[in-house]
Design a protein around this nucleic acid. Structure first.
Lengths: 148, 148
DNA sequence: AACTAAACCTAGTAAATTACTAGGGAATGA
DNA sequence: TCATTCCCTAGTAATTTACTAGGTTTAGTT
């Protein structure tokens, strides 16, 4: 249950872009030196965020990145889900039980559809919701405005 | 942000013990075959839970484990914190910033005490609280009584 | 048209963590 | 004394994470 570097750096990058929202595009090299991550690693995070629709890019000379939406309309949850593989904390949640939670023998029943229905499943489901609710309750703009 | 096997199996084990609360001790072999984990691996989880004060043990022949407290008085948070290293999702939370969150360059300031004070720190702190609140809101007894 | 600066894409690798396995030691009851 | 049970430590294989590397494509500038 550790947060990945991707999520930590990724949120930093999004904050940086939000701080400069409306000021035109930002190049990878600018951002990487500001945040203190290698260009190559940051590039991968940015790529993930772009594919999630949070960031847009202009290619070629004078190109760079910019937020696809106003920081008000981007939640921290949007960002972290993109970087943390949907925040699926346990495979059962995505409809696939790997049976490594001990389901096969306990009161639980992993039925034909592979969906887990353990007594403990409900705990993980609640936790999943709590995490998402928490992160969705914070917008990128509220973050940079020190409202969090 | 994946849940570890330790947490998954550990909660299963605690549920099993709660189901048999008041029926005397439970041996490792019984529990391991019921849950479907190897004795040796389960032993390590149980050991962690015992050191956290959640489980007690009788050694020697006819020995075994039993819950230290009534399932009503054990929260899921107690269990998961024991198994997931305090649920410290990022090192800054425990008062130690590894500066790998990009603090050194951004508006953030990791001061002399090593405590992180990033704009993003507040996000992780909120998330930490949300996770703990969620898990502390569920008792072991509520779980086995299908009240969750 | 050539050059340059930028994003884009894929593969590889080193480090760290996780998930186990293994084996012996110590306590206790029969 | 012996079997059964918990206790402790170390090792290892598998997986994941964090990061590096190198080439491709796009687009503005000269």
């Amino acid at each position: 249950m550790k947060l990945s570097s991707k999520a930590r750096y990724g949120l930093k990058a999004m904050c940086y872009m939000a701080d400069h929202y409306g000021e035109g595009v930002i190049s990878l090299s600018t951002m990487s030196s500001s945040i203190g991550v290698s260009e190559k690693y940051l590039e991968q995070l940015i790529s993930t965020l772009r594919k999630a629709g949070l960031i847009s890019a202009n290619r070629g000379a004078n190109g760079g990145y910019f937020l696809s939406k106003d920081p008000v309309d981007i939640s921290v949850g949007d960002i972290i889900r993109a970087l943390e593989d949907g925040l699926v904390i346990i495979d059962c949640l995505s409809g696939e039980c790997d049976s490594k939670c001990g389901c096969s023998t306990n009161p639980c029943s992993c039925e034909g559809d592979g969906k887990c229905n353990c007594s403990t499943y409900n705990v993980w489901n609640k936790l999943y919701e709590a995490i998402n609710d928490c992160l969705d309750g914070m917008s990128l703009s509220s973050l940079i405005n020190k409202e969090v």
